[in-house]
């Protein structure tokens, strides 16, 4: 499927391969992935364990490198960047949300968000980011005092506070119950709409795909399906 030329792509990749290890022990995580992700979409990436979806996301997020092939973010070639440039790329453009939250236990919710706003070019106010995830009243709590869903929402607030162009979410609801999970997805949808950020969500929960603009399915290190979702469902209506 080739999008019309007027559409800007957040990401483009050509023949991306990723091999871990070498010789007989080598593991081919990606086997020549060509991908185009239009700007501003919610993309849900599905696939079984070991299909290469996390590896692809890590490469797009600038925390892993390709073995071969090329990847562009807008007009910049990520695969040509050195480590310092990749750091700047993550710092300016990318927000991450992880399955295990990865909050700093020694900082409060607000401070965890401020951790990012202090180094970002054009951040929103930390309070505003927390308001977006509905945690204004929990802002001065430490992670140990928050539930799993709340911790994940702090992680999202931290990711969005820099007003990123792209938001990567690796199993954002994986550690949460369905009710909390829906709330988190609603926040992601809101970020997508308010900030116009491209949101890429990796998940095992196929139901999440119902809210996506696009669903990409990975298998054996390759893209098996790349489907535009024509019947989007609001997060609160997702059947879990």
């Amino acid at each position: 499927m080739t999008p019309p030329p007027s559409i800007r792509h957040a990401f483009r990749s050509e023949g991306v391969t990723k091999v871990y290890g070498s010789g007989p022990a080598a593991v081919h995580a990606l086997r020549g992935v060509d991908l185009e992700v239009p700007q501003g979409e919610i993309v849900v990436v599905l696939g079984p364990s070991g299909s290469g979806k996390s590896t692809m996301l890590n490469i797009l997020g600038g925390i892993d490198r390709v073995t071969d092939g090329k990847v562009w973010f807008l007009d910049e070639e990520l695969t040509a960047m050195n480590d310092a440039a990749l750091t700047q790329y993550r710092r300016r453009h990318v927000g991450f949300v992880f399955q295990f939250y990865n909050l700093m236990p020694s900082l409060t919710a607000r401070e965890n968000v401020e951790l990012v706003t202090e180094i970002a070019d054009n951040p929103m106010d930390a309070g505003e980011a927390l308001e977006l995830v509905g945690l204004t009243d929990r802002a001065d709590h430490f992670p140990a005092q928050l539930s799993g869903g709340e911790q994940q929402r702090v992680a999202i607030a931290r990711a969005i506070a820099k007003q990123p162009e792209v938001l990567f979410c690796d199993e954002p609801t994986g550690a949460l119950d369905s009710h909390t999970g829906r709330a988190v997805l609603r926040v992601l949808k809101g970020v997508n709409e308010k900030l116009g950020a491209t949101v890429m969500i990796i998940t095992h929960a196929a139901a999440t795909a119902q809210m996506a603009d696009r669903v990409i399915k990975f298998a054996d290190g390759q893209i098996r399906d790349n489907i535009v979702n024509t019947s989007k469902v609001l997060p609160e209506n997702i059947e879990w």
Binding site: M104, I119, K162
Partner: peptide, 16 residues
Amino acid sequence: ERDLASLRVIGFTRGE
């Protein structure tokens, strides 16, 4: 280790 990696991922330079 984990905190440091998280900081690196969210865009902190090595020095920071």
